[in-house]
C-alpha cells in the first residue's frame, strides 16, 4: 500500500475501494458509479489502472497498490501531476480528481510523449462533470512539457 506492507483480513467479496476506504480509512479514493464506468475510483495496481469499486481486495495480495495518498514523493512535496492540476485548475469539486491523477500517471508512465489524441483516448474512461476536461488535458501536457 503506497510502498508500505499492509496485512489485513478481508471478506472474500470485499472490493478494493471499500478495503481502502473503510478498513484503511484512505478516503482519497472516491466511489461514484460503483460499476466500473466512471473512473473516479481508479488506483494503480502494479502500475496499471484498475477500478477499485469492482476490483476485489483479494486480488491485490502481494501487489503494489498506489492511491492518491501515495502519489506525492514526500510530505510537503507534490507529484508533478498534482502541481500541474493546481496550475491549470484541472479540478473543481475534486470528486473525480484522485482517479484522474492516477489514470494520468499511468498514461505518462507508459506513453510519456502521448499526443493530444492519445491523451483524450486514454483518459476517455474517466468522467468529470465539472471541468469540461480541457484543463485536465492541459495539465497532462504541462507535465509532458516539464519531462521533455
Amino acid at each position: 500500500m503506497n510502498g508500505v506492507a499492509v496485512e489485513q483480513e478481508i471478506e472474500p467479496q470485499e472490493s478494493l475501494a471499500s478495503f481502502l476506504r473503510e478498513r484503511l480509512r484512505l478516503t482519497g479514493t472516491k466511489v461514484s458509479c460503483d460499476v466500473q464506468v466512471c473512473g473516479a475510483c481508479t488506483v494503480l495496481v502494479d502500475g496499471l489502472p484498475v477500478s477499485a469499486c469492482t476490483y476485489l481486495a483479494y486480488e491485490a495480495r502481494d501487489r503494489d497498490v498506489l492511491t492518491v495518498e501515495g502519489l506525492a514523493p514526500s510530505d510537503g512535496e507534490l507529484h508533478p501531476l498534482q502541481r500541474a492540476f493546481l496550475e491549470d485548475n484541472a479540478y473543481q469539486c475534486g470528486f473525480c480528481t484522485s482517479g484522474m491523477l492516477l489514470t494520468a500517471k499511468s498514461l505518462l508512465d507508459t506513453n510519456p510523449t502521448a499526443t493530444e489524441e492519445e491523451i483524450v483516448e486514454y483518459m476517455d474512461g474517466n468522467l468529470c462533470r465539472c471541468t469540461g476536461y480541457r484543463p485536465i488535458v492541459a495539465a497532462i501536457k504541462r507535465v509532458q512539457g516539464e519531462l521533455a
Binding site: T27, V31, V68, E69, L71, L78, F85, G94, T97
Partner: peptide, 17 residues
C-alpha cells in the same frame, strides 16, 4: 484555489468520508 492542495492529495473531506 484554497481547496486545491486538499483536493489533489485526497485529503479533502466529503460527506462520505
Amino acid at each position: 484555489r484554497k481547496d486545491g492542495p486538499q483536493k489533489v492529495t485526497g485529503r479533502a473531506t466529503y460527506t462520505a468520508d
